[in-house]
Simulated assay, not measured.
Amino acid sequence: MKRLFLRVMAGAVMASALVASTTAATAQTKTLKMQATWPASQTLYENFTYFVERVNKLSGGTLKIEAMPAGQVVPAFEVLDATHKKVLDGAHAWAGYWTGKNKTAILFTGGPGGTFGMDYMDVMGWFYHGGGLEYYNEFYQKELKLNVVVFPILPSGPQAFGWFNRPIQTVDDMKGMKCRQTGMAGEVWQALGFTVVNMPGGEIIPSAQRGVIDCAEWVGGVEDLRLGFHNVWKYHYSPGLHENVTVGELLINGDVWKELTPQQQEIIKSAANETFLVWWTKWQRQNADALIELQEKHGVQILRTPPEILMAFIKKWDEIAEAESARNPFFKKVHESQKAYASAVVPYKRSYFPPYSFMANYYFPDKK
Rank of each mutant, 00 (worst) to 15 (best):
A216E: 02
E217H: 11
E217S: 13
E217I: 14
E217K: 07
W218V: 11
W218R: 08
W218E: 12
W218N: 10
V219R: 05
V219I: 09
G220M: 05
G220L: 04
V222E: 10
V222D: 10
E223I: 06
E223H: 03
E223K: 00
D224F: 01
D224V: 00
D224G: 03
D224L: 02
R226A: 06
L227E: 12
L227Y: 11
L227M: 11
L227A: 09
L227G: 06
G228K: 02
G228N: 01
F229W: 01
F229G: 00
H230E: 09
N231V: 03
N231M: 06
N231P: 04
V232S: 02
V232K: 03
V232H: 01
V232Q: 04
K234F: 02
K234Q: 09
Y235C: 09
Y235R: 07
Y235G: 03
H236C: 13
H236V: 05
H236R: 10
H236W: 14
H236S: 09
H236M: 13
Y237D: 06
Y237M: 11
Y237T: 05
Y237R: 07
Y237V: 05
S238K: 14
P239H: 04
P239R: 07
P239S: 06
P239I: 08
L241E: 12
L241F: 11
H242C: 05
H242A: 12
H242N: 12
E243D: 14
E243H: 09
N244Y: 12
N244H: 11
N244W: 14
N244G: 09
V245M: 10
V245S: 12
V247K: 04
G248C: 06
E249C: 08
E249Q: 08
L250V: 00
L251F: 13
L251S: 06
L251H: 07
L251R: 03
I252S: 03
N253M: 05
N253A: 04
G254M: 11
G254N: 15
G254L: 13
G254T: 05
V256S: 06
V256M: 07
V256P: 01
W257Q: 01
W257H: 05
W257Y: 13
W257I: 02
W257V: 02
W257S: 05
K258D: 10
K258S: 10
E259F: 01
E259V: 00
E259G: 08
L260I: 01
L260A: 02
L260Y: 04
L260F: 07
T261N: 12
T261S: 15
T261P: 11
T261C: 13
P262C: 03
P262K: 00
P262G: 00
P262R: 01
Q263P: 10
Q263Y: 09
Q264P: 10
Q264N: 10
Q264T: 08
Q265E: 14
E266W: 11
E266G: 14
E266D: 14
E266F: 12
I267C: 05
I267E: 02
I267V: 11
I268D: 01
I268R: 03
I268A: 05
I268T: 02
I268Q: 03
K269V: 13
K269F: 14
K269T: 08
S270F: 15
S270G: 15
S270E: 14
A271C: 15
A271T: 15
A271E: 12
A271F: 03
A272G: 13
A272M: 12
N273E: 15
N273I: 15
N273A: 15
N273D: 15
N273V: 15
N273R: 14
N273F: 15
